[in-house]
Structure formats: structure tokens, C-alpha cells
Design a protein around this nucleic acid. Sequence first.
DNA 1: AAGAGTTTGTGAACGTGGGAACAAACCGAG
DNA 2: CTCGGTTTGTTCCCACGTTCACAAACTCTT
Lengths: 217, 217
Amino acid sequence: MARLPVYLRALNSLLEAEVRSCSSEELATAAGVNSAKLRKDLSHLGSYGTRGVGYDVEYLRYQISREIGLTQDWPVVIVGIGNLGHALANYSGFSSRGFRTVALLDADDSRTGELVAGLKIRAFRELTAIVHEHGVAIGVIATPAAAAQSVCDQMVSAGIRSILNFAPTVLTVPDGVDVRMVDLSSELQILAYHEQRKAQLQSGDAPVVATGSEGVA
Amino acid sequence: MARLPVYLRALNSLLEAEVRSCSSEELATAAGVNSAKLRKDLSHLGSYGTRGVGYDVEYLRYQISREIGLTQDWPVVIVGIGNLGHALANYSGFSSRGFRTVALLDADDSRTGELVAGLKIRAFRELTAIVHEHGVAIGVIATPAAAAQSVCDQMVSAGIRSILNFAPTVLTVPDGVDVRMVDLSSELQILAYHEQRKAQLQSGDAPVVATGSEGVA
DNA sequence: AAGAGTTTGTGAACGTGGGAACAAACCGAG
DNA sequence: CTCGGTTTGTTCCCACGTTCACAAACTCTT
């Protein structure tokens, strides 16, 4: 479930505040969701709460970590060390949560050897060897859109089965391979859409149900 | 709708390939969605297709752009110029789609004046003045988690009503303000979760419905 | 030990979104 | 002009996720 990481983060915050135990209501507000939803989500993992008391923060945190798979080590490869790849390589949120960046790859050979976040950039052609050596299962694509599908295909044939894609392209992959896409400009566009709606409502167009046909010749 | 940007991107690709007209089926596969869903989405904007023929690529592209609000100019402020803020400032996907970064702000005064992506970093305290001067409606938060809520509050009181949050925290905002959260490590965690499930299936645990209670003392 | 007060876990209603199927509409050939 | 082929726009249906509401279960006080 996509909300488990959010719960985990909320639990970490509570733990930092030295809160030992919490109710579903508290945790739900901290995570920004409905308490019933939270309880149902947690009940899918097992009965880790105590009725009349709540959840033990430390214990629940461990159980969610285990469910997500954060108790094991996940070697990760990042391909495309441009501005974004650079930022991802330095992002502390990865390393602090069981993800270990084992290699930074770039197709531009002139960058090979350059030191980024304590790792030397290596040539993209080394991908397969690195995947096999470290047992990499997760790859991150931070290349330009034009290169993304090719990189993706080579990741899949090298044995990677989970891909996090930052390139603004729809990737096609065989069954059994998971792709998650993070599209930065799409996020801004969605905000702009809502912003525009808000502006229209305030300017008095509110009562008219938008048909989209007004003003079109 | 959150899929409009995806359609828009697909249309741009078709336009680059000099495709003048396309059916819902073609566009749907290019966008990676079901054709019925695409038609239903588009019909919400108006009747921009022709039965028996399909959609005019250029015309549909303009209509979607207009619906999202990309035909107008959106000034954007980025707060927190660390690794990620740096990458965002340089990200071409923003500027090429009607979004104009008008200021980069950072709380660390020692960085004021530093040149990033052709803009000088300015002090965070200038936020309100900049928002009013440029009519900024969209803010991007790329600060550490600890500072995010404070930055968010000041953005809201300065008049910003749409926020793109990259800090790993749930932001609380008053009604009428939109927040979209992009959590990089959550994305990786979700991949790890699916990856773990795949690994478990292959190792023979498949027939057992996971209860989460096995192996717990 | 019993009851009052909490809080979890879950069963049932509700609403939303997705997908298949079909009617309406358009084009081109004869 | 008519008819067959094609494609959109829409309706209906289903399944999923969310939320409400309540019973089960636990703690603490008396």
C-alpha cells in the first residue's frame, strides 16, 4: 500500500519526540489521513495494536519497516548524472532508509571518474556487470527523455525489475517489471490547473458549469 | 484531472513526429491508458474530436493547454536551494511549459547572491515582496523537512495558494490552498515493497496468504 | 470483581472511478 | 443518395477504496 511510507515517517517523528505509544487518531492526524482508513490499513498487516490502549510506536515502526522490506538492504543504481541525478545521489533520504546507492552511471564517457556524493561516475556499459555483482533490483532513471526507454530496456535485460523513472516519458516494460514515474513538470501543471479553477471561481464565472465550448469559434 | 499533462506530452510527441490527426486508440497507447478512459477524460473538456475521424493533434493540444492553464504565464518561486533546489532551478521541463522561475530563495544568508541557473539566490525574507511584485501563485518547497512547515506558512500568508512540496513532511494548510507532495524516498519504498513481494512469490511462499503474523514471537 | 471509559478491528453503506458496450455521427465509395 | 466502415461520446455496470458505525477487547478505578 502506498500509504505505508507515510505512516512510517509519522512514526519516526513520534519516536523522535519520544512518544512511546499512540492511538490511531493521533497517528492518523500526523499522517494526514482518516483514522478508520489508517486502522484498516494496519489491520491488513496484522493485529499490532491493543484495544483500549493504541499502538506501540517502536513495535509498529518495526513491523511496517519489515512489511515494506526496509529491514533488508536494497542496492540501487542511478543512471543519468545530470542536475537531477546529482541531487538524487546526494539525497540523504535514500541512504537513511535502507537504500544503498552502489553505482552512478552516465552515458557521457567524459564524465567517467568524476566524484559525486563519494562515488565515482562509471560508464553506462558497465550496468550489467554491476547489477550482477551487487544483486541490484532497483534502478533509477534520471536521463533525458530521449534516452530513457533505451536505458530502461537495458536495465530490464540486466535483471532489474523495479524502476523509478524521472524522465518525462511513458516507459513500456514486460510483465513482472514495476515502474513508478515521477514527473516534476506534471506536478506543476496539476497545480496550475487547480490554481486556474480557483481564479475563475473568484472572478464570477462560478455559477456557470464549464462546458469548454464557450469562446470556441 | 491528473492525466491531462500525460496526454499533453503524448500530443507533443505526436506533433514532433508530424502526425496531424490521431484516434483515441493511438493517443491512449501513447499515453499508456485505456482508450475509453481517454475519451471520457477528453469529453469532459468538450467535444474536440470528430466521429469517424479522430482528433486533430494541434487543436487538441491547444485545448488541453488552455484547460490546464498553460496558455498563461505562471511565475514560480523556489525556496531551499540545496541539491534538489539546484536541480529544480535548472530543470528545463519547467521553463518550457509556461512556468517561469522568478526567484530562488534560501534561508542561509551566506548563499545570497550566488548565481544558480541564471538567477541570483535571494534572502528568504524577501518572499512576500517578491510574491506581490510578480503575482506569484505557485511556490516550490525544497528545504529540509524541519523548515518546510514554517516556509509553507509564510508562503500562505504571503498569498501563495498552490505549493509543490519536496520536503518529506505532511504540510497542514488552510482551506483554499493546494499542496502536492513529491516524496522521493516514499517512491523507492513502494518499489521495495513490490520487489519484496515478487521475491517472496518466487521463493515458494506463494500459496500462503500472508497474514503478517508468522515468525512473530 | 465489576463497571465505566477507551480504543482497536471489522462489517456494511456509500461514493467514485474504470472498463465494456452501444448509439450517434462522420467519411467515402458506388 | 444510400450504405458500409470507422471513431467519438455516452451509458451502464462493476469493483475498489473510503467512511461510518458498532462490537470486541483492554485498562483503570472503585
